[in-house]
Amino acid sequence: MAEIVVASGKGGVGKSTVSSSLSVILHEKSIGIVDADAEAPNLHIIFDINEWEKEIDYRDKSLAVIDYSKCDKCLICERVCTYEAIYHDEIVKIRDYICEGCAACKIACPRKAIKIVSGLHSGWIRISSTPYGPFVTSELDVGQSNSGKLVTEEKNIARGWIREGRVRNLIVDSAAGIGCQVIASMSGATHAILVVEPTESSLSDMKRAYNLAFHFRVKPYIIINKSDLNPGFNGIREFARENDVEIIGEIPYDRVVPRSMAFRKPLVVYDPDSRASRAIAEISEQIKNLLD
């Protein structure tokens, strides 16, 4: 079993383009597909998924609730709430989309007029199928926290497919950055594909993703996207050489890529003969050796 997470440290560098295209090319290797960006999922758009085989109500939110029969409007709760979730006009109110359920207000309330309610709806896990393998994604509701826990639940579902014999390998399209979602994506993975553009900013962010992979002992590889836009930039190759990380391919800039997104198709399906598609096909031959 191989669990390959596609990450970067920076948004907009082509992770989803790479993930979706690899899923298509490598589908004969029995692939399960995971969109692990619970705050901004987009793989379902690329795969043109409009209906879900299963939707799971994810309930992980905690919320402060006021008992107005006990509240005397002393406003101590408002003062102790560091999230500014509590405010007042005629009565004391709670902004439920900001409240973290931390219980500071409950502890501080001298009238014991506040309780914490847990297990409330905070998002969705959605499961469907593509022509290339089973697919799972998630979506956290606006203002909700614990995106890492939601991604972990997604991955547990996908790992269940492996135990059931439905698939042998997983491709995980990670969120940008190195926050909770990416930590959850990287945890337990076998390989990390780090997508980077030839700029100082992208390299700096990729280094953070590399450090995260190193922490979790996940074997990293590098793909340079839009590799021909800054030919004089050698920072990525120097970093790879100094840290003994293999650059498994370069993808040239290609105007076909945004058009494939607009038509809701993976790049290698929309135009398999484009420059970028051919480059990804070459990269997939190396990744194929990592799969079970």
Rank of each mutant, 00 (worst) to 15 (best):
M1R: 12
E3P: 04
V5C: 06
G11D: 05
G14N: 00
K15M: 00
V18D: 10
V18A: 04
L26P: 12
K29N: 14
K29C: 03
S30T: 09
L43I: 12
E51I: 08
W52R: 11
W52M: 11
K54E: 15
Y58K: 03
R59M: 00
R59Q: 03
S62N: 06
I66N: 12
D67C: 11
K70S: 08
L75Y: 14
L75S: 07
E78I: 02
Y87I: 13
D89R: 07
E90L: 15
D96T: 15
I98D: 03
E100R: 15
G101K: 02
A103C: 07
A104Y: 11
I107H: 01
C109P: 06
P110H: 05
R111H: 12
R111S: 12
K115P: 11
G119S: 12
L120W: 14
G123T: 07
I127G: 05
T130P: 00
P134T: 13
F135M: 10
V136Y: 01
T137M: 07
E139F: 09
E139M: 12
S145C: 00
N146H: 13
G148T: 09
L150S: 10
V151Q: 07
K155W: 03
N156K: 14
I157L: 08
A158M: 04
R159C: 11
G160H: 04
R166F: 13
R166Y: 14
V167C: 02
V172K: 00
I183Q: 03
M186P: 02
G188P: 00
I193T: 02
L194R: 05
L194N: 00
L194D: 00
V195C: 01
V195F: 07
E197Q: 13
P198D: 15
S201V: 13
S204K: 09
D205H: 02
A209Q: 05
A213T: 08
F214H: 05
F216Y: 13
K219H: 00
P220N: 06
Y221M: 08
I222C: 10
I222V: 14
I224T: 11
N225Q: 07
D228R: 04
F233K: 15
N234V: 01
I236D: 13
R237P: 00
F239H: 08
E242W: 00
N243K: 13
V245L: 03
I247W: 10
E250K: 14
P252K: 06
D254M: 04
D254F: 01
R255E: 09
V256D: 11
P258T: 04
R259Q: 14
M261F: 12
A262E: 10
F263S: 13
K265G: 07
L267E: 13
P272V: 01
S274P: 08
S277W: 09
R278H: 04
A279L: 03
I280Q: 12
E282V: 04
I283W: 02
S284L: 02
S284I: 03
Q286A: 07
I287T: 11
N289H: 11
L290A: 02
L291C: 03
